[in-house]
Amino acid sequence: MKKGNDHGKHKYGMVIDIDKCTGCGTCMVACAAENNVSVRADQSDKERTITWMRLYKISNGKEFPHTEVSYFPRPCMHCDHHPPCVSVCVATATKLDFNTGIVSQIYTRCIGCRYCQAACPYGARYFNWWDAFPQDKGMDRYLTPEVSPRMRGVVEKCTFCHHRLMRAKTLAYAEDRRELEEGEYVTACTEACPAQAITFGDLNNPEHEVSKLIKHPFTFRLLERIGTEPKVYYHSSRDWVRKLGDNFLPGEYTPVVNKTWAEEEWSTKPGRDEF
């Protein structure tokens, strides 16, 4: 069986460098501000709080003073191979667009059954339990017209800021172009990251930085072995971080040590344990 959607024109994806990631949370705030994500008084209940981009805190579990924490910023993975949410949607409210690789979510079509939420292995989908915006506080004044505010009773998730793709295309058309340059369309989190930890681009275009980065031996994906081919990649020089990318049984994980083909270009110096 053929994996992925090679027949499409573009396949947008991102690589998040966990070494650069500072865990500051700017991506989460940028995402919420960009996408009219709702804000409620109590946001500590993480099952009810909507965060299209969410930081997962991880730790190497070692004792003091050898403890390290790190973060997996988790947008929607935009799975390329039978996205689990798409196959279960009874209302066809979510689809994988083969031309962009983006998994769409149409709020007006969603019936709120939350099947997709249960199906998503990454917890990337969120249900609107309440109407999003406090009525009398003037907070609807910062909403952007580029993204539709959601109503209660529908599921929402990261869209790879597809409205930015529209925006970039519109600008390209105004300039009499049909194709986009690298960097013309990036997501809000990519742009916002103060440490430039996120790289976004077209995985089908070998010239794009992302296509090069995903070949690196330090690059991995979350729950890679369930075969959904996520288009969000992670990159870390620390073994323990890579190991947490999947649920490995003892002995299943092979540390990355000097992959020969890349030895010249990519050094795999030991992590800080040997510092």
């Binding site: 500051c24 700017t26 705030v29 919420a32 907070m139 910062y142 916002a192 990251c193 103060p194 430039q196």
Partner: peptide, 15 residues
């Protein structure tokens, strides 16, 4: 290019 999360959420302090 980058700013911190507080600066990123600044519009809520305005509106």
């Amino acid at each position: 290019g980058g700013i911190c999360p507080v600066g990123m959420g600044g519009l809520q302090l305005l509106y």
